[in-house]
Lab assay of single mutants.
Amino acid sequence: KRPMNAFMVWAKDERRKILQAFPDMHNSNISKILGSRWKSMSNQEKQPYYEEQARLSKIHLEKYPNYK
């Protein structure tokens, strides 16, 4: 399994927050909201998630050096 990208790292927690506020919301609607919110974020706001992506990718590479 591939490591999560920056959007997926961010969306994991955000999806949970949306589901708590709107438990009956369909997954497709949540995904649209998440995509819209991510697009509206500045690069500075996204930076911690890109850093986490890099950390996860490094761990993945160490654990699975032959993964293609």
Score class of each variant (00 low, 15 high):
residue 1 K to Y: 12
residue 1 K to L: 07
residue 2 R to L: 14
residue 2 R to Q: 07
residue 3 P to M: 06
residue 3 P to K: 15
residue 3 P to V: 04
residue 4 M to F: 06
residue 4 M to G: 06
residue 4 M to K: 09
residue 5 N to Q: 06
residue 6 A to D: 04
residue 6 A to H: 00
residue 6 A to V: 02
residue 8 M to I: 06
residue 8 M to Q: 15
residue 8 M to H: 14
residue 9 V to L: 15
residue 9 V to W: 08
residue 9 V to G: 03
residue 9 V to P: 00
residue 10 W to M: 00
residue 12 K to P: 04
residue 12 K to C: 05
residue 12 K to W: 04
residue 12 K to I: 08
residue 13 D to E: 14
residue 14 E to S: 05
residue 14 E to V: 14
residue 14 E to H: 05
residue 16 R to I: 14
residue 16 R to K: 14
residue 17 K to S: 06
residue 17 K to V: 04
residue 17 K to I: 04
residue 17 K to T: 03
residue 18 I to Q: 00
residue 18 I to C: 03
residue 19 L to T: 10
residue 19 L to F: 05
residue 20 Q to L: 08
residue 20 Q to A: 10
residue 20 Q to N: 12
residue 20 Q to D: 12
residue 21 A to C: 08
residue 21 A to F: 07
residue 21 A to V: 06
residue 21 A to D: 15
residue 21 A to K: 15
residue 22 F to H: 15
residue 23 P to L: 01
residue 23 P to F: 01
residue 23 P to E: 05
residue 24 D to C: 04
residue 24 D to G: 11
residue 24 D to N: 09
residue 25 M to D: 03
residue 25 M to A: 08
residue 25 M to K: 04
residue 26 H to W: 09
residue 26 H to L: 13
residue 27 N to R: 09
residue 27 N to H: 12
residue 27 N to G: 08
residue 27 N to V: 12
residue 27 N to Y: 11
residue 27 N to C: 12
residue 27 N to L: 11
residue 27 N to I: 10
residue 28 S to N: 11
residue 28 S to D: 14
residue 29 N to E: 15
residue 29 N to M: 14
residue 29 N to R: 12
residue 31 S to A: 13
residue 32 K to S: 08
residue 32 K to P: 01
residue 33 I to H: 05
residue 33 I to E: 07
residue 33 I to K: 07
residue 34 L to W: 00
residue 34 L to K: 00
residue 34 L to F: 03
residue 34 L to T: 00
residue 35 G to F: 00
residue 35 G to E: 14
residue 35 G to T: 15
residue 36 S to A: 14
residue 37 R to G: 12
residue 39 K to S: 07
residue 39 K to V: 04
residue 39 K to L: 04
residue 40 S to D: 10
residue 40 S to V: 08
residue 41 M to N: 03
residue 41 M to H: 01
residue 41 M to C: 05
residue 41 M to G: 02
residue 42 S to N: 07
residue 42 S to F: 04
residue 43 N to G: 08
residue 43 N to P: 15
residue 44 Q to L: 11
residue 44 Q to C: 06
residue 45 E to F: 01
residue 46 K to A: 00
residue 47 Q to H: 06
residue 47 Q to M: 10
residue 47 Q to G: 06
residue 48 P to E: 03
residue 48 P to H: 04
residue 49 Y to H: 01
residue 49 Y to N: 03
residue 51 E to I: 03
residue 51 E to Y: 04
residue 51 E to F: 02
residue 52 E to T: 03
residue 52 E to W: 00
residue 53 Q to S: 15
residue 53 Q to F: 13
residue 54 A to D: 14
residue 54 A to L: 06
residue 54 A to I: 08
residue 55 R to K: 05
residue 55 R to S: 07
residue 55 R to M: 05
residue 56 L to C: 05
residue 56 L to T: 10
residue 56 L to N: 07
residue 57 S to N: 13
residue 57 S to I: 06
residue 57 S to G: 09
residue 58 K to Q: 08
residue 58 K to A: 12
residue 58 K to I: 07
residue 59 I to H: 11
residue 59 I to L: 11
residue 60 H to E: 13
residue 61 L to H: 13
residue 61 L to D: 15
residue 62 E to A: 09
residue 62 E to Q: 07
residue 63 K to M: 11
residue 63 K to C: 09
residue 63 K to E: 15
residue 63 K to Y: 05
residue 65 P to Y: 09
residue 65 P to G: 12
residue 65 P to I: 10
residue 66 N to R: 08
residue 67 Y to M: 13
residue 67 Y to R: 12
residue 67 Y to H: 14
residue 68 K to M: 09
residue 68 K to I: 11
residue 68 K to R: 07
residue 68 K to L: 06
